[in-house]
Design a protein around this nucleic acid. Structure first.
Length: 576
RNA sequence: GCGCCUGUAGCUCAGUUGGAUAGAGCAACGGUUUUCUAAACCGUGGGUCAGGAGUUCGAAUCUCUUCAGGCGCGCCA
């Protein structure tokens, strides 16, 4: 029906309006056909005449009359009204209204899929937390978000690939290995343990699990910890250096063991959170800068030829040529690459894999980094439009009104796993997604855990469970669940059904804008409408004539709720 | 100093990309169950959409500006 009306509107623009081609183009682009938010305004509504009247400097009423006649000629349309400042409201016949619902139930993309949006190959890179410790509640938000937009884009017909970028090559990993080493061989007293090392209890666990034949003598330890620099950061770097040189065997054993251990635990947490990645990309696979065959060398070499220069012994990328604020170092004075150089090679690798769009989900503290990476993409000869960066603000966790602190180094943090164990993966995901991603989220675990009315997650689940229960009772009465509407003129479900139709548009918009929270609020609204209906109408004791359509309506609402929850990675509950 | 984000009811937030009378939840007060799950529903009160100017048929939404708050500005990752 949507497509049918839409093409009538377009025919009208083409044939009945005496506009020049430019005006027609903007009109085609700007007019909208939307579901009405209330049936008093009809089933469908369009602003076409408003826009047209603006372009032609004419009264909307003069333009509308021809359109109204054209629309009213269609057998599915019962009535067309001009309302408000110039909206055209379209009222369908009951039969047409029900038909589009049955169609939408069969094909949840019936309105949106034939539109000219092309199917793309999309890659989403998200979480990508440094493998230096367990995921904490801040990472959970990125995980829930990235996974949800993946599901939504898939629903819209795109081919989606999820990727985790593992920074397994940098200094952070050395600090991890060093921390484990120091614990393993008990090099420091508890009080003297370096501040800049990781202190979480998981470090002790890993240290206990690591099987190393070698032992450190007291003099080894003494050598390791005497005459260290005072500065915390310098101290840890010095320790790393000394261990690497003097205990290279243990070092690499511990480093590999620790890294694998942490990555494994991250994977387990994500699996429990129902986030599955198609690909784990390791920074180390890009190779070493010294190796001329490595990807990282070749990527840098390519860029260096045209868009880089040497200054103060370092190699600088001319990123200002591509919109960055200043030029950036890609190879340090001492010959090592910067973080940007690895990212440059990584993005080249991604774009060469043939994705139409790559989406990077980053913590919002990286926002200063966007221009920089865009510049490197342009410098390598790609278009920055192929990459979309979506920032996710950190989630603040509250418990009983007070903020729970998070810091990986101090080891004092609330892990994602704890959260999942506490309130479950589904409620966690629901709350993570309940606010626009790039804005602060205050997550009160007390509310999420509670059975109270302000727990929105249960409000939505309750609507689903109630419908399941009614269906069950209906079957127990010996009735069969209807698969079609009949022509009874009971209209008590119509507003609810109108809202159910809107799911397609909400999902489309949430996919196009990468905003899963729109679905959360849609779920709240349709659940509310259902609860109202439920309290108004006694379904099982309703008139036999009305019951078929009521049950049909509930089946449709239930399936809309279930499939919307699915897009958020949440399993609908059949009973509570 | 430069850049990005935010400011909507007492609190937490939506607002379909410029549309019709600005909406929910919580909190406050009052009500609804011999009948399908009361984790529900109904009612009442609560607003200069931070302030100002502009763009137009029409602005919470776009532009400019003032104020307030948050974040980012390494040869760290």
């Amino acid at each position: 029906m949507y497509n049918q009306i839409l093409s009538s509107l377009n025919d009208f623009i083409d044939n009945d309006l005496f506009f020049d081609p430019d005006q027609k183009k903007t009109l085609l682009h700007k007019h909208k056909l939307a579901l009405s938010d209330s049936l008093q305004k009809g089933h469908w509504t369009t602003n076409l005449c408003l826009i047209a009247s603006n372009l032609a400097k004419k009264n909307p009423r003069d333009i509308a009359s021809a359109l109204i006649t054209r629309l009213e000629n269609q057998s599915e349309i019962a009535k067309v009204e001009l309302a408000g400042p110039g909206f055209v409201n379209i009222f369908l016949t009951r039969e047409a209204f029900f038909n589009q619902l049955d169609d939408a139930d069969k094909n949840p993309n019936s309105f949106v899929e034939s539109s000219h949006t092309s199917k793309e190959k999309i890659q989403i890179e998200f979480v990508s937390a440094n493998p230096t410790g367990p995921l904490h509640v801040g990472h959970g938000r990125g995980a829930a978000y990235g996974d949800a937009i993946g599901r939504i884009l898939q629903r819209l017909g795109h081919e989606v690939s999820r990727e985790y970028y593992v920074n397994d090559a940098g200094r952070q990993i050395d600090i991890l290995a060093c921390s484990i080493f120091l614990r393993k061989f008990e090099c420091f007293d508890e009080k003297a343990f370096p501040k800049s090392a990781y202190k979480g209890s998981y470090i002790l666990e890993i240290a206990r699990g690591a099987e190393i034949d070698q032992a450190l003598t007291e003099s080894d330890k003494e050598k390791l910890i005497t005459n260290l620099p005072k500065d915390d950061e310098e101290k840890i770097d010095e320790l790393i250096e000394r261990i690497k040189i003097n205990h290279s065997n243990s070092w690499s054993l511990i480093r590999d063991f620790g890294l694998n251990y942490v990555i494994k635990s991250i994977k387990e947490d994500l699996t429990q959170f129902k986030v599955i990645f198609d690909n784990w990309f390791f920074e180390s696979s890009l190779g070493e800068l010294e190796d001329k065959k490595s990807e990282i060398f070749q990527a840098l070499d390519q860029v260096k030829k045209e868009h880089a220069y040497e200054k103060n012994g370092a190699v600088w990328l001319e990123s200002t040529k591509f919109g960055d604020d200043k030029d950036r170092v890609i190879i340090r004075e001492d010959g090592r690459g910067t973080y940007l150089s690895a990212d440059l090679a990584y993005h080249r690798n991604k774009l060469d894999r043939g994705f139409d769009t790559i989406i990077n989900v980053w913590g919002s503290d990286h926002h200063g980094y966007i221009k920089r990476i865009e510049a490197t993409i342009e410098a390598m000869g790609y278009s920055k439009k192929q990459m979309q960066v979506q920032l996710v603000q950190f989630a603040n966790l509250f418990e009983n009104g007070s903020k729970v602190k998070m810091s990986t180094r101090s080891g004092n943090f609330y892990t994602l796993k704890q959260l999942i164990d506490d309130i479950g993966p589904d409620a966690s995901r629901f709350y993570y997604l309940s606010k626009q991603a790039d804005q602060h989220l205050d997550f009160d675990i007390g509310v999420a855990r509670s059975n109270s009315k302000d727990n929105l997650y249960y409000y939505v689940q309750y609507a689903h469970a109630r419908i399941c229960s009614v269906e069950k009772k209906y079957l127990e009465l010996g009735m069969a669940l209807p698969s079609k509407f009949d022509d009874s003129d009971f209209d008590g479900c119509d507003e609810l059904l109108q809202m159910a139709l809107n799911a397609q548009f909400v999902i489309k918009s949430s996919g196009e804008n990468l905003q899963p929270h729109l679905i959360v609020y849609y779920l709240r609204d349709i659940s509310q409408s259902f609860h109202q209906f439920y309290n108004n109408v006694n379904i099982l004791n309703a008139k036999k004539l009305e019951q078929n359509n009521i049950m049909r309506a509930l089946i449709i609402v239930k399936s809309v709720i279930a499939s919307s929850l699915e897009l958020l990675g949440i399993e609908p509950l059949d009973s509570m």
